[in-house]
Simulated assay, not measured.
Amino acid sequence: MILVFGASGTCGEAVIKALVKAGASVRGFVRNDERAAIARAAGASEIALGDLRNAESIENALKGVSGVFYVAPKFVADEACIGRMIVRMAGRAGVEKFVYQSALHSNVERLLHHELKREVEECLYESDLDFTILQPARLMHNILSSWQKILSTGVYSEPFSADAPISDVDFADVAEVAAIALTQSGYGRAAFELCCEGMLNRHQRVELLSDVLGRPIKSADISVEDWLAKARITDPFEREARTRMFDYYDDFGFKGGNALVLRSILGREPTGYRSYLKGTVKSC
């Protein structure tokens, strides 16, 4: 039995599906019954209702599991505190394998949310757990938040330079790696940077979008403040973290693009951006 945190989210759902495909049984950790239905639909055979800030509910969820997949909530100020608590409780519960979804280049100090992920990584390094740290590049499914606007306006806008090179990964590939690490031996006590081959700036992305959609898509800039307003983000920590992230992308991009590790673990070529877009168009 493997416990998946964030079981009703995009990442958690994908991991559940990958684990079930690998023959594992899954217990999904969710907040409520509505979220439980999503996790069950993804393949979870058991549900643990709880709150990440409630130690008792986490302790109950950990009972009888051999493995854990943990991904933190997005852009929360107490991410490190929650993560360290879960790591320590998993150690006390005798969990055999622990997979943590961190982020590519978690050691970049300018990225506020990366600092918190790095603290959780350090907690794992200090633990006796058989851990695997996954460090994915920017997730390709992030474009879905802009998908309807792209289709309706023919414009793809982001709050950083269109020249910024960005490394990507399809989360379905990351989920497959998580399932491999949790169900097979040889992947413990390690951290893996996961990305597809190459990097793309927004100019190149709109070219691919235009080709895949069969009509012209243009690139446009949007200010960070306007982006935050349109996304209705009001939490001070999240606003600061996202602002720092966009400013960093503006200055340096988010470089990576070496698929050696991901290719080696999957035993195949990772999904490229064009293939991801084609799959998105087909599924819509």
Rank of each mutant, 00 (worst) to 15 (best):
residue 170 D to C: 12
residue 194 L to V: 05
residue 267 G to Y: 04
residue 149 K to G: 12
residue 53 R to H: 10
residue 42 A to R: 00
residue 26 V to C: 03
residue 147 W to D: 10
residue 16 I to D: 00
residue 194 L to D: 00
residue 237 F to Y: 12
residue 252 F to N: 15
residue 191 A to I: 01
residue 83 G to N: 01
residue 36 A to T: 06
residue 280 T to C: 13
residue 193 E to L: 10
residue 9 G to K: 05
residue 57 S to M: 05
residue 189 R to T: 10
residue 274 R to Y: 04
residue 211 D to Q: 15
residue 116 L to Q: 12
residue 54 N to E: 15
residue 71 V to H: 00
residue 271 T to Y: 07
residue 70 Y to M: 05
residue 185 S to F: 07
residue 164 A to K: 00
residue 181 A to K: 00
residue 117 K to N: 10
residue 236 P to K: 03
residue 29 F to V: 01
residue 281 V to S: 05
residue 35 R to F: 08
residue 59 E to F: 09
residue 269 E to Q: 11
residue 263 R to E: 14
residue 206 V to N: 06
residue 96 E to V: 11
residue 62 L to N: 00
residue 268 R to Q: 01
residue 243 T to W: 09
residue 139 L to A: 14
residue 264 S to V: 05
residue 47 I to Q: 06
residue 122 E to N: 11
residue 238 E to Q: 15
residue 113 H to R: 06
residue 258 N to A: 08
residue 101 Q to M: 15
residue 63 K to I: 12
residue 208 L to M: 13
residue 221 D to H: 13
residue 57 S to G: 03
residue 250 D to A: 09
residue 270 P to F: 11
residue 119 E to V: 09
residue 97 K to V: 02
residue 43 G to L: 02
residue 197 E to N: 10
residue 204 Q to H: 03
residue 223 S to I: 07
residue 186 G to M: 07
residue 158 E to A: 13
residue 261 V to A: 01
residue 27 R to I: 02
residue 61 A to S: 07
residue 52 L to A: 06
residue 56 E to A: 14
residue 142 N to C: 05
residue 210 S to C: 04
residue 203 H to N: 12
residue 72 A to T: 08
residue 173 D to R: 01
residue 211 D to M: 09
residue 114 H to I: 07
residue 24 A to N: 00
residue 281 V to C: 02
residue 282 K to M: 10
residue 97 K to C: 05
residue 2 I to T: 13
residue 27 R to K: 11
residue 143 I to W: 09
residue 56 E to K: 13
residue 267 G to M: 02
residue 14 A to Q: 09
residue 149 K to T: 14
residue 264 S to Y: 10
residue 92 R to F: 12
residue 266 L to W: 06
residue 248 Y to R: 06
residue 95 V to M: 06
residue 61 A to Q: 02
residue 163 D to V: 08
residue 260 L to G: 13
residue 209 L to F: 03
residue 156 Y to Q: 07
residue 6 G to W: 00
residue 122 E to F: 10
residue 107 N to F: 12
residue 4 V to H: 02
residue 83 G to T: 01
residue 239 R to T: 11
residue 102 S to L: 05
residue 277 L to E: 03
residue 42 A to D: 03
residue 2 I to L: 08
residue 103 A to M: 14
residue 208 L to V: 09
residue 104 L to M: 12
residue 196 C to V: 13
residue 264 S to E: 14
